[in-house]
Design a protein around this nucleic acid. Structure first.
Lengths: 113, 113
DNA sequence: AATACAGGTTACCAGGTGGTAACCATGATG
DNA sequence: CATCATGGTTACCACCTGGTAACCTGTATT
């Protein structure tokens, strides 16, 4: 869902998908809106994700300047992920996604076939 | 990008991604906002898409109640795709995606690595 | 009869994405 | 010294998504 975008007309909608189109990215961004979270905490909010994929999605978000990774070498190693200013600018979009999603019934209940 | 969503907490953001998370779906929806378009016209706006994938994405959007397919058996066969009311309700979300995308430089110009 | 056009379908294939399980480094704890 | 927790990395694999190319149906057109 990332390098495969060609975006021939440099469509802004497509460009947005290049950033947040990953399998778990919208949820991660959404979880980080309120406050920074640790790696383990993020994993707990997404029980179906593996550590590998969580790491990978976070690295991509970091590369893309959406998320900032902070390492604290404390009593126990602590790694926190925080939204950057760019990431925070996604707030209206995330809210629009949340609002639209709330108006839709869960897909399984909505099947027309 | 479709059946693989488990969405354990029935997160509305994730639910939105179930609908519009497809490779070409946001662009298709965006193109249909102004007016219905024929299959061939859609294909012209997306030169990189194959007929198979375009058909597939449109079928999924149709199944999900986002798009309505109209077949006109005229002089030449004509098939038009139109946003349903549900599809039209995506307008604010699509605009939010467009606006955010416009604020971001093309990814290649923005690379930090 | 052959060809063109619209709107597909089908068979087949490549690659990316995600998943599992094992392993690792560091520091604390028993 | 062995073990646990955190936050990963690595090897390996399955599957889904997307892609190509050929073919199809129906209605003109030449």
């Amino acid at each position: 869902m990332r390098k495969t975008y060609d975006n021939p007309f440099d469509c802004p909608v497509t460009r947005t998908m290049e950033y947040i189109g990953g399998r778990w990215k919208p949820i991660i961004i959404f979880l980080l809106i309120d406050k920074p979270l640790r790696f383990g905490k993020l994993a707990m909010f997404m029980p179906a994700i593996s550590k590998k994929i969580l790491t990978q999605q976070l690295r991509e978000l970091e590369e893309d300047g959406i998320v900032i990774r902070h390492v604290f070498r404390e009593v126990q190693l602590r790694v926190e992920y925080e939204l950057s200013e760019t990431g925070k600018s996604l707030l209206p979009l995330m809210m629009a996604m949340k609002e639209w999603g709330k108006t839709m019934l869960p897909k399984s209940d909505n099947a027309q076939s």
